[in-house]
Design a protein around this nucleic acid. Structure first.
Length: 657
DNA sequence: GTAGGGTTAG
């Protein structure tokens, strides 16, 4: 007969189904199956080499099971992400009264609750931990509780558990950092990290740095990210694939896509997450063609795209207008995921909508078995973007009728759809709904409602909403300024801007400046507008061609074409100036009928776009003002020859019924 | 016998 120690080693070494079965038979023959050490090992052997279900069968046959045995099986279920079964087993253990939960089984039950987002169940386990002795100072139970509360979005309770703990270890600190990152609160994550190293003097490990790098990428904090990278390399952590992936994401998201790509190319190993990360970053930050060529390279190299990869590649097709490639990916989705994944289907809807194919988008939508709010909103927004906003209203009603609760994004999108249609009646209905549902505390919702009322022509309501919104962020202020501008109230727009910059909690952005500059220009507030333009530098904002166009327009209206020209010539940029700047100059030349400047502007414009009828017409009007009929006739015949049409202006009026 | 980490849809 084999010695006990040898037997344990043998079971540990089991690598295949046959060897596990042989040892099982041997244990039976030697009547050793009552010894829990053997049984637990054997269960693990079955779970790892044969199947968890075989381990379960063995488990069910054993008459007197101890905590170690229950735990072995629980671990197997958690490992295979079979969390429902794990909790059922845990319930069976507790309710059957066979074993009390201990420091090993509780963390696994908490893990299952966290993954299934079962807040009530996890809270009950927390109650058990508090009522019973023996769990104080157990780091495994502590980190299990922190992770559970963080995953269910209850960071307050996670913090309480953490604060009540006497001496949390690195894992618990890391759970807190990771939790805050996962809840989109990177500032708090970095605060905990700072406390961990400076106050407690603990040494962070690989896992800690992965989350710290994620926090940096959420904050676009490249400086801190770089020092994390440097420290990690010095500690020899640069062989951690997760850490490298997290850093790769940080560089690419913080605006240094080239550095990200460089890291990606020089990494010692890459997995599907590395590929997905770099594809997602290229797709989201203006390089859809590069994203797709990386996707194709990945497939050629034999990597298997997962859900995330496919979503990112579809984003690239949406952003770059690659309908054909999008359809090819749709076929792959059909073969691999059979249209069952709602996130992938939503990305498909977005791709088809952005490629002006609403019918295909609708087909994808109808096939989704469990449509969530994100899928509905993708469809709704797509219709608005395809100039079919009245369909968006219908989609919103259908969504409500099917029992899906709208969230803040849904409300913003439906308000945008109403803005497109200019329907005041719907606006007031939605306003009532927003008040009742408490959505007005969300600054994006508030800003969209202000914009909607402005576009429907009711500025009083806009201003009322503006004063009611408690959390006025930059978007809310900018919407109100834009609203005044839209109604020709430059003075009010300018005053609102002045009030805004007195508030230290908000900082104007490029959109704010564009709105206030445009408002000043339309109301002839020349000096005010120029002063506002100068302020951009103080806020470290670089004016883009839209800002320059407004300033040129401003100077042009005043008749100061010389200064307008000087502004244009003073712009230092590597890329050619956008047509909006030249168009503003041409418009100003027409107002003041200046042939030289007009011809100069038109020359630059027609160099970029020869098919814009409006430019020819403006120049021909300048010729007409000087009686240069021949030049005018030449331009008019060019328009006819090229069969150009000037877009006619359109207005929407709501008809009361 | 145990724990924490990287990419994703509106």
């Amino acid at each position: 007969m084999l010695r006990k120690e040898v037997l344990i080693r043998l079971i540990q070494c089991c690598e295949n189904a046959k060897s596990v079965s042989q040892l099982h038979a041997h244990l039976l023959k030697s009547s050793l199956l009552h010894d829990d050490r053997y049984v637990a090992r054997l269960c693990r052997g079955y779970g790892e080499c044969v199947s968890l279900d075989d381990a379960r069968k063995l488990f069910d046959e054993i008459p007197d099971r101890n905590a170690r045995l229950w735990n072995t099986l629980l671990k197997g279920y958690c490992y295979e992400n079979r969390h429902e079964e794990a909790l059922r087993l845990f319930g069976q253990m507790v309710c059957g009264g066979e074993e009390k939960p201990d420091g090993f089984t509780i963390p696994k039950a908490l893990k299952a609750c966290a993954e299934l987002r079962l807040w009530d169940y996890g809270r009950m386990i927390h109650g058990f931990v508090r009522r019973n002795e023996g769990f104080e100072g157990n780091q495994f139970v502590g980190s299990g509780l922190v992770e559970f509360y963080m995953k269910t979005g209850d960071s307050c309770s996670a913090r309480n558990v953490f604060r009540d703990f006497h001496d949390p270890d690195v894992v618990m600190w890391t759970c807190m950092i990771t939790g805050y990152v996962q809840n989109g609160r990177p500032d708090e994550a970095l605060g905990i990290f700072a406390e961990m190293i400076s106050v407690q003097g603990l040494v962070p490990d690989r896992a800690t740095f992965v989350s710290v790098a994620s926090a940096c990428s959420q904050l676009f904090d490249l400086k801190l990210g770089r020092s994390v990278h440097g420290y990690a390399v010095r500690k020899g952590y640069d062989n951690s694939l997760s850490l490298m992936n997290s850093l790769l994401n940080l560089y690419a998201k913080a605006g240094f896509l080239r550095n990200g790509l460089n890291l990606f190319r020089t990494m010692p190993a890459r997995d599907v997450i590395s590929w997905s990360s770099i594809i997602a970053c290229c797709a989201q930050y203006g390089h859809p063609d590069e994203a797709l060529s990386l996707y194709n390279e990945m497939v050629q190299r034999g990597f298997d795209p997962n859900v995330v990869t496919v979503i990112s590649a579809l984003q690239a097709c949406a952003a770059g207008g690659y309908l054909e490639q999008g359809k090819t990916i749709h076929e792959l989705v059909w073969r691999k995921f059979s249209d069952q994944n709602v996130s992938v289907s939503t990305a498909l809807i977005d791709m088809y909508m952005k490629n002006k194919s609403p019918k295909e988008a609708m087909d994808v939508f109808q096939r989704i078995p469990d449509k969530d709010v994100v899928a509905w909103v993708a469809l709704l927004t797509g219709f608005t973007d395809n100039k079919m906003a009245s369909e968006s209203l219908g989609i919103f009603c259908e969504m409500l009728a099917s029992g899906i609760q709208p969230d803040a994004v849904a409300m913003v999108k439906i308000l945008v759809a109403c803005s497109e249609l200019g329907v005041l009646k719907q606006a007031t209905c939605l306003h009532g709904f927003l008040i009742r549902s408490g959505f007005l505390s969300n600054p994006y919702v508030g800003a969209s409602l202000i914009e909607l009322y402005s576009k429907c022509g009711n500025l009083d309501f806009s201003s009322k909403v503006f004063h009611e919104v408690c959390k006025k962020d930059v978007v809310v202020w900018s919407s109100m300024i834009a609203g005044y501008g839209m109604h020709g109230l430059g003075r009010e727009a300018h005053d609102t801007f002045q009030q805004m910059i007195l508030d230290p909690s908000v900082k104007p952005n490029d959109v704010t400046f564009l709105s206030v500059l445009s408002a000043c220009s339309h109301s002839g507030l020349i000096d005010e507008g120029l002063k506002v333009f100068q302020l951009m530098h103080q806020y470290r904002l670089r004016p883009d061609s839209k800002h320059y166009a407004v300033v040129v327009d401003l100077l042009g209206r005043m008749g100061d074409l010389g200064r307008a020209l000087a502004v244009i010539q003073g712009i230092q940029t590597e890329t050619p100036l956008g047509s909006d700047v030249w168009a503003a100059l041409l418009g100003a030349s027409r107002v003041h009928d200046n042939i030289e400047v007009g011809e100069f502007a038109a020359e630059n414009l027609l160099h970029q776009n020869q098919d814009h009828a409006g430019y020819y017409i403006l120049l021909s009007n300048i010729y007409a003002a000087y009686g240069r009929w021949e030049d005018m006739a030449n331009l008019r015949s060019t328009i006819k020859l090229r069969k150009l049409n000037k877009m006619t202006g359109q207005s929407l009026v709501e008809v009361a019924r």
